[in-house]
C-alpha cells in the first residue's frame, strides 16, 4: 500500500489511539473509570493494528511517524496558542464607540444633574 495513503489513514487513527491512552490517564485514579477507559482503548488500538497489518510490517516507520506527528501537533498547537495569545497583535481588540465623544454632550437623562 502506498505510504502516503497509510499515513493519511493512520493520522486520525493515531489521534484516536493517543486520545484513548490519555483518557486512560484521566480515569486512572478511579478503578471503574480506569476499566472503562481500558475498554475504550481496545477499538482504536484494534483499528490501528489492523491498518498496520493491512499496510505491511515494513510500514512501521509510517505508523510510528503518524503517532509522532499527532503528538508534535498536539504540543505545537498548545504552545502556539499560548504564544499567539500573548501577542497583542493576535489578541481580541476592544473598541468603544463613545471614547472620543464630546465629553460635554448630554447623552441621556441623568447625565445632566446640576
Amino acid at each position: 500500500m502506498n505510504a502516503l495513503v497509510v499515513l493519511i489513514v493512520a493520522l486520525p487513527l493515531s489521534v484516536e489511539v493517543l486520545g484513548a491512552l490519555f483518557g486512560l490517564r484521566d480515569g486512572w485514579a478511579d478503578t471503574a473509570s480506569k476499566a472503562s477507559a481500558l475498554e475504550r482503548l481496545a477499538t482504536p488500538l484494534l483499528c490501528w493494528g489492523g491498518l498496520w497489518w493491512l499496510a505491511g510490517i515494513d510500514m512501521w516507520r509510517v505508523m510510528l511517524a503518524a503517532l509522532v506527528v499527532v503528538l508534535i501537533l498536539h504540543v505545537a498547537t498548545y504552545y502556539a496558542g499560548r504564544v499567539l495569545i500573548s501577542r497583542p497583535r493576535f489578541q481580541t481588540h476592544a473598541i468603544d464607540t463613545d471614547s472620543d465623544d464630546d465629553p460635554f454632550q448630554k447623552k441621556s437623562p441623568g447625565d445632566n444633574w446640576d
Binding site: 486520525p12 489521534v15 490519555f22 478511579d30 499527532v70 498536539h74
Partner: peptide
C-alpha cells in the same frame, strides 16, 4: 477541520468519556 483535528483532537477524544468527578 481535519488539520485542526490533528492538533486538538486528543482533547476532543478525551472529552468523550470524561469522569465528571475528576
Amino acid at each position: 477541520l481535519l488539520i485542526a483535528y490533528l492538533g486538538t483532537g486528543l482533547l476532543w477524544v478525551r472529552s468523550r468519556h470524561l469522569p465528571f468527578e475528576k
